[in-house]
Nucleic acid binder design. Structure first.
Length: 822
RNA sequence: GCCCCGGUAGCCCAAUCGGCAGAGGCAGACGACUUAAAAUCGUCCCAGUCAGGGUUCGAGUCCCUGCCGGGGCACCA
């Protein structure tokens, strides 16, 4: 059956979207495109099953649906396989693509196969280079020398987003180290506010979890910058603080050891201090991220023998370096307020620095004890809460919030501070020292100056891999291809940038490319974009909640600002599916708890696997393959399929006059399914379809029989519903019902409203919250009548015997609640 | 430490607005059909919704506290 229908679909290509007028409204349904490492796995089986439900659903609703697919085919695994097995990364990649493509076709995903793109094709990556140059021209792509995350195994730099919280690489798993390198960045921080604020517009349409993760990641924090004059230095030291109210409590300053400022200040100190600083800096750089993030570890630091002046009270504050201050957050320096910040307190206690309380937390009715009892110097606990300012000059007596706004006003008036915002988000480092990616279209002149490759010279093609040594050496393999690196530009000898772009650049705009996938004159067609974009429904794993989605949002905003797009968010609605796991754990080769995609298809068939994915539970939940039953899905599909053989009426038979009960159930079903699919309650939609099959089975076996027109009507609707989940079975049912293919091109029938109105509903009668009786009434019954009826029933009369009615609440036509006392 | 999500039957999961806790499936038991088994069909079994408190005529649903599980961020000033 699978083979029969696959051949037909291949021939008729029912899901191809042609250019030209189509009167139907449009929907752009996009599943995250895969990375071609080996064959598809169970995770893919889930996304493509669920994405296909949505795509097929909107087709049933009469929409022209664009549902494209492609491959995110640049990236490290190809290169690593090449190194390990001596194969060409190109060959490896395109072979895997061919295999995955065949699997997707077998899986009956309703993709438009005419728009396939591969990011590793020159026809794609030349537009990636166009994008780079476009950002470059706008000053959004720039080069800087900075401390970067270095993966010592893959021998390449990583974006912040690719470093896991434990300090290891999300690819190789190696402990990431810091290295100072000149690299290309995209200025995503310019968009931090918009990336954060626009998340509000996605509320309710993106999973709350993803919104929270993005907000966390951008990490906006509001406070103030305060300037401290440094002795023997012209420019003051600026610090960022969220607690300017505690400025009077500052007793020392701390500078990050790996900052330029620390280096400079140490130069002005004695020889011993210089030496101590050098040692400390080296020690810091040796410390792994894991250790550095361990807040419980002993505070360390070096006093620089330099002093700053507190702008509000003229106090002399010693300046220290310590690794608990990070060079790349805020200004890389802080004012330390030990009484009100735990980290500063720990440091002050370690080095016996003064501690001054400036905010008295005692208040009426609190049981925290007196101020003396809470002295941070003895309790070793910083006073974190709100209270009343003390020891703070003009701020004395104010609360925290008032003090913050007051002190900022004062600082601004004096010109020694200002309101300020900082972000956790860093600029996006896009250079990679690897081969299998998009070459950065920049050349360097004799003086090292940047020369953008002219647009008409794009693409900058990757050289042939033959004879190329891809082994990681810490610099790009492209650098070794001298005839590629050394070029002549306007008669001058120049060298190409030998790095390639982060593959997240490729995927940050691919959804636009699908709209004109083979256009060789431009990256995307603005008219097509107007017709189709933004993506109406995006489907994919939560593992891309930060990286890919943030970058795609950023690039969309940039292209919007440049006038290419008239929208600012690329994905109007987002569905994250969970993972497919086994025995409560993530599948992995090392654990040996793998379920193979092709084996499952062999064992149960495509339809049963797809249906199992949809039926397993809410899409965002993980599916434990042990808890679900593809056999059960198989049985259900067979049961549904059998209905189509038991229908004996002719195609086109009017359902009028068919069995009333079955028709009422059916039209309720027709009315409910769309809402369920649109709310992503696929599991419930499948359950309702099973229920409908049960109803119809009963009508055939013990009801009016297979000749009843309602039975045909119901079976046809079931075939349509099933077509979203199990296309082969549905197609076969449709044919057996006497129709021409394809069921995928049918329209979901409108429910007959007259069959939806209930002619009677059951009202419940409660006494003191317990259900004591129920009566069947008409839905339009007036409250008084229902109350009279309720109080009159035998069961209620009996239950009320000897009691006094206190009051009666009537919610016609569903509930009568009687409150009675003895 | 901060933030987000979840906890309903042996298991996976339903339950628009606060209104009869159960739609569907898995597993299990029994029965019909069968020489038998499989397949199929049918019937049945099972929880008072993690715990405690509150609001309400009425709470799985709303509020508070706690427990458990999952996830994100974190020496971020």
């Amino acid at each position: 059956m699978e083979a029969k229908w696959a051949a037909l679909w291949e021939k008729t290509a029912p899901f191809t979207v042609l250019d030209g007028d189509d009167p139907r409204p449009k929907k752009y349904i996009l599943d995250m495109f895969p990375y071609p490492s080996g064959d598809l796995h169970m995770g893919h089986a889930e996304v493509y099953a669920l994405g296909d439900v949505v795509a097929r659903y909107w087709r049933l609703r009469g929409y022209q649906v664009l549902h494209p697919i492609g491959w995110d085919s640049f990236g490290l695994p190809a290169e690593n396989a090449a190194i390990k097995r001596g194969v060409d990364p190109r060959e490896w990649t395109y072979q895997n693509i061919a295999q995955q493509k065949a699997s997707m076709k077998r899986y009956a995903a309703s993709f438009d196969w005419t728009r396939v793109l591969h990011t590793s094709d020159p026809e794609y990556y030349r537009w990636n280079q166009w994008l780079f140059l476009t950002l470059y021209e706008k000053g959004l792509a720039y080069r800087k020398d900075s401390w970067v995350n270095w993966d010592p195994v893959d021998q390449t730099v990583l974006a912040n987003e690719q470093v896991l919280p434990d300090g290891t690489s999300d690819r190789s798993g190696a402990m990431v180290v810091k290295k100072k390198l000149t690299q290309w960045y995209f200025k995503i921080t310019d968009y931090a506010d918009r990336l954060l604020d626009d998340l509000d517009t996605l509320e309710g349409r993106w999973p709350a979890k993803v919104l929270a993760m993005q907000r966390n990641w951008i990490g906006r924090s509001q406070g103030a910058e305060v300037e401290f004059v440094i002795e023997h230095r012209d420019t003051p030291l600026t610090v960022f603080t969220t607690r300017p109210d505690t400025l009077y409590g500052a007793t020392f300053m701390v500078v990050a050891p790996d900052s330029d400022l620390a280096e400079e200040l140490a130069q002005g100190a004695s020889a011993e201090v210089k030496l101590a600083f050098q040692e400390y800096l080296e020690q810091t750089q040796r410390t792994s991220e894991i250790d550095r993030q361990d807040a419980s570890r002993e505070k360390t630091g070096v006093f620089l023998e330099r002093y700053a002046t507190n702008p509000v009270n003229g106090e002399r504050l010693p300046i220290w370096v310590a690794d608990y201050v990070l060079a790349d957050y805020g200004t890389g320096a802080i004012m330390a307020v030990p009484a009100h910040d735990q980290r500063d307190l720990d440091f002050a206690l370690t080095f016996t620095l003064p501690i001054r309380v400036v905010l008295d937390p005692t208040h009426e009715g609190d049981d925290g004890g007196s101020l003396a009892e809470r002295d941070p110097a003895t309790t070793r606990l910083a006073l974190a809460g709100d209270g009343v300012m003390v020891n703070s000059g003009a701020l004395d007596g104010l609360g925290k919030a008032e003090a913050i706004s007051r002190i900022i006003d004062d600082l601004e008036a004096k010109g020694t501070g200002r309101r300020a915002t900082t972000y956790r988000l860093r600029d996006w480092l896009i250079s990679r020292q690897r081969f299998w990616g998009t070459p950065i279209p920049i050349m360097y002149g004799p003086g090292g100056e940047e020369i953008a490759v002219p647009q008409d010279q794009l693409p900058v093609l990757l050289p042939a891999t033959e004879g190329l040594d891809l082994t990681p050496k810490g610099s790009s393999p492209l650098g070794a291809v001298s005839e590629w690196v050394n070029q002549t530009h306007n008669g001058v000898a120049v060298t190409r940038d030998a790095d390639t772009m982060d593959t997240f650049v490729d995927s940050s705009w691919y959804f636009l490319r699908f709209l004109s996938a083979h256009d060789d004159t431009q990256a995307f067609d603005v008219d097509k974009v107007k017709q189709w974009a933004p993506v109406d429904q995006y489907v994919g794993g939560v593992e891309h909640a930060i990286l890919h989605l943030l970058y795609a949002r950023f690039i969309t905003k940039v292209l919007h600002d440049l006038g290419y797009l008239d929208f600012e968010e690329p994905f109007s609605s987002l569905l994250n599916q969970g993972m497919v796991i086994l025995d409560g754990a993530k599948m992995s080769k090392s654990k040996g708890n793998l379920v193979y995609f092709s084996e499952e298809l062999d064992a149960y068939g495509v339809d049963a696997v797809r249906l199992t994915m949809a039926f397993a539970g809410p899409p965002e939940d993980d599916i434990d393959w042990r808890d679900v039953s593809p056999v059960g899905s198989q049985k259900f599909l067979a049961r549904a399929w059998r209905l189509s053989g038991d229908v004996t009426s002719a195609p086109g038979t009017s359902p009028e006059g068919g069995d009333g009960e079955l028709r009422r159930a059916l039209h309720r079903f027709l009315a409910d399914i769309p809402g369920l699919i649109e709310a992503f309650k696929f599991n419930v939609a499948v359950a309702r379809t099973m229920e409908m099959v049960n109803h119809t089975r009963k009508a055939i076996d013990t009801g009016p029989g297979g000749a009843d027109p309602a039975v045909r009507e119901a079976t046809e609707a079931i075939a349509l519903a099933i077509s979203m989940f199990a296309p082969h079975t549905a197609e076969d049912m449709w044919e057996r019902l006497g129709h021409q293919p394809s069921v995928a091109l049918q329209i979901w029938p409108e429910p007959d409203q007259s069959l939806l109105v209930e002619d009677s509903v059951t009202a419940i009668i409660q006494i003191n919250g317990k259900v004591r009786d129920r009566v069947d009434v008409s839905p339009g019954i007036p409250a008084e009548e229902l109350e009279k009826l309720a109080l009159g029933t035998e069961a209620i009369q009996r239950a009320l015997a000897g009691k006094t009615i206190v009051n009666v609440v009537v919610r016609a036509p569903k509930v009568v609640a009687i409150n009675a006392a003895d």
